[in-house]
Structure formats: C-alpha cells, structure tokens
Write a protein that binds this DNA or RNA. Structure first.
Lengths: 231, 231
DNA sequence: CGCTATGTTGATCCATATCAATAAGTGTGG
DNA sequence: CCACACTTATTGATATGGATCAACATAGCG
C-alpha cells in the first residue's frame, strides 16, 4: 500500500489514536482495490469479511425488501463503512455499491476485531465513531417521521448550502437517488423542486440557486437536533 | 443503593466486564430515584448530565419538531438509555418521559466518561451496546422506508408474537403510542387493525390473537434484516 | 359516578404513489 | 463524430394511502 494512503487512513479519527504497532498490524492485512462504477461491494445479509475504507469515489448504501429498494446513505472519502457489522460479526443490514470509480481499502474484519480486543484506544475511537453514526441515523429517523417530503427537501438543500458554503451549488447525487434517500419517488421530487420555487429555490439540471435564504429557512425550519450533522 | 440493584446493573452486558474498582467508582456517584408516570427525565437539546439505567417501569423516548411529536422507542428494564449522548457529551436528540411508575438509576455522565477513558473493557462493552443500538435504528429506518403502515403493523405483531412466544398476547403500549411509534395516526392504526382481520388477526381492546399465522406471515413477509431485533 | 383521555367510525381532504407519455441527457459502437 | 439505445428527468392524469376533522363510544381514574 502506498505511503500516502497509509497516512490518509492513519489520520482518520478512527485510527489516529491507536498504538503504532497495532496500526501496522492492521495495515499488513489490508489491501487497496480500485472498483469501476456500479460494482456491488457487499450485499445485505452477507457476513462482513472486511471493514471498508473509501479513499476516493463514492459508495451508495441501500436496502431492499419485497422488491422495493431505498438508498440509506452515501459514503464519501475518507471514511469507513459497515463498521458496526464488522465489529459485531453480524450480517450486513445494507448493501454497498460503488457509484463511480472508487478506490477502497479492505481490512479483514477478523484483524479489526483482534486489534479492537487488545487496543483500548482503538476501542474508544470506535465508540466515538459509532456514537456519531447512531446519532446520524436518529436524526434521519426524525427527519422522516416529523417532516413532509417538501420539508425534507427544503432542509436537505439548506444542509447542502451549509456544506458548500454558498447559495449556489450542484447536487452531489442523481435526483433519482436523492429522491430515494429522502424517501420519495423521482416524480414527487421533481414536483417538490417546483413546490420550493415560491420560497426562492431555482433549479437548472443539478445546479441549485437559493435566491431567498430567509424565505426558504422560514419554510424549512431547520433544527440542529435534526440537521446539524456531526453535532 | 441496595445490593440487589447493584447486581442488576453489574449483570448488564455494558457493565459486566469492567474492572471491579471502576464499577465501584461508578456506583459511588450513582443514585436511584423513583418517578411517577409522565415525568420528563430529559428534554431533547439538553446536555446529558446523567446516563440513565431503568430498573423498573418503562420510559418513552420521543422527539418533536415544529409542533409535531413522534415516539421513537420504549425503554424497558433492565437497560440503559441515551448512552451515545452521554459518551459524546452532545445534546440529547430525544426526550425521555416515564410511562408508568419507574425506578431509575442516574450515573453522572462525567463519571461514565472518566471510566470510559481508563477502562478498555468498559469501552469495548460500550462498542457492543452502541453497535446494537445503531443496527436497531437502521432496521427501523428500513421498516419505515420500505413498508406501508399496514405492513409495519403486521410485522410488529409478528415480532410481539415472537417475544411473547404465543399467538395470543397483549399490546405492551397504548395504541396511541403504538401508532406514533409505527409512524401513523391513531385513526389509521384503528383501521389498520381492521385491515389485518382478513389475514387472521383478532383484536379486542389491547388483546391480540393471531388465528392464522401463515396467512399473516405471507402478507407481512418478515425479514431478519429488519425484524430480528438483537441480530 | 362523572370527568377526561383514549379509541373507534365515518366523511372528506391532501400528500404521495402510480401509470403513462415525452423530453433530455449520456454512453456506446459503428 | 454521429446515431442509436438506454437511462434519467419531467409533466400530466389518476389512484390510493394516510391525515384530518368530527362525532361518538369506551375505559380508566379521582
């Protein structure tokens, strides 16, 4: 594995505090792989052979039931995914698929569990990571249960505005997937964008311009306990 | 604190592996309190002063936004709640309220974090607990996004059947709260119960009888990756 | 025993899904 | 580089799941 990747991983909060020898042990068993778009990395129900770390590209986490499918999250560099399943040695609850060409590190789950058992600092870092994941999912549940689809879209756009730091930005995923992520159909998303026009949202393709932030915020009523990710 | 409570807590997976002296340290700062029904134990947004352990009774975890409210989970003995917020020292994402007369242990969050920092076994136990919580919420999200309310109710009844080990059981919560938990209105729940009659579900008050398990299961299509809690 | 909260039922309304048709991209191979 | 195929996005018409409103019934509880 190239030195630069090693450093990227080492700098992740999850790995930055652990003993050097334990980190080395993990890296010895790790390997990096490049995947083309639309490759299945994991299927829900499978046992987690590897903890995944995404170095570049993006990965969709999604779930299916009874012929229906929904997008649960998008993973972007540099971060890990399916940590809970790896640690618990329990079946994946979500499938993972590359959205674009992606470079991914695979750490054998058994190695991760071995180091977890002997390195208290690693265990503590995992706690922090899982607590954040847990809180993110809770926020997502609140978003789903307490808001209409129009409100979810409005707040999503405000979050994207904050991430980009600008009132103009491009959507980071296909509208089709955004709809699924927000829990609606593509048709409904299309109409929802139209429905936000009166509140100062302009849409051209995947380019968004917020022309009246106050108006949009007044409608969306963003709330840190739902919308501030990593808080 | 009475010896019997001490043992109940010590036997929780979260506390069973930690060093005796650290457990004692936690217990020294702990105190037990009895609450009547409908008492607010925590309000979302508050900073987590205590990790709560429920010894008897039951507690509702719920969230609000913009005048709407939804029940997120029910906590029953013996287990802890709002662990993620306590460890992260981040604001509560859910409010907590006793549903009935409840006996609850309060552990100062600072003590918990102190022991967490020095006891690797405790840290590992927290990982296991959080990983389970995380997976539960993910399952809940899948339930919400992939199923209609009728399907959610059908699968809920099958889960209750498994917990009780019998085709006849009583609902463990008010229908009003069950509706909120399942993401529907009380009126809709009432009609959903009616809608399950053709599949062999009999309802009298809060007593449920499943008269045709196969038929109900054929409609509900339960799935371990959504419905098997603690798996 | 009444008071109050919960549960049911009916009528209606609204949000969202579905179905269908078209348009607009996007990628591929000739 | 273009033509074709295929996927995605949009728009309209319609259906339906679920919410809301209102009336009434029921059950705990003081």
């Amino acid at each position: 594995m190239p030195e630069s990747h090693r450093d990227d991983i080492r700098n992740l909060a999850l790995f930055s505090d652990m003993a050097e020898e334990n980190f080395e042990a993990l890296m010895r068993g790790a390997y990096v792989q490049n995947f083309p778009p639309r490759v299945d990395l994991a299927v829900e129900g499978d046992t987690p052979d590897f903890l995944h770390i995404i170095l570049s590209g993006s990965v969709d986490l999604f779930s299916s039931w009874n012929g229906r499918e929904t997008s649960m999250a998008t993973v972007r560099p540099v971060s890990t995914f399916i940590l809970a399943a790896s640690i618990n040695d329990a079946p994946y609850l979500m499938s993972a698929r590359t959205l674009e060409k992606s470079r991914i590190v695979l750490l054998p789950s058994q190695d991760v569990r071995d180091v977890f058992m002997k390195d208290g600092d690693f265990a503590r870092a995992i706690v922090t990571e899982l607590a954040q994941c847990y809180r993110s999912v809770i926020k997502n549940t609140k978003d789903l249960k307490l808001r209409t689809s129009l409100e979810r879209l409005a707040n999503y756009l405000l979050r994207q505005k904050n991430r980009s730091g600008s009132l103009e930005f491009d959507l980071v995923m296909e509208k089709r997937r955004l709809a699924s992520f927000l829990g609606m159909t593509p048709e409904n998303l299309s109409r929802a964008f139209k429905g936000l026009e009166p509140y100062g949202v302009k849409v051209q393709g995947n380019h968004i311009v917020i022309t009246d932030l106050d108006d949009l915020a007044r409608f969306a009523r963003p709330n840190p306990l739902i919308d501030d990710h990593h808080a």
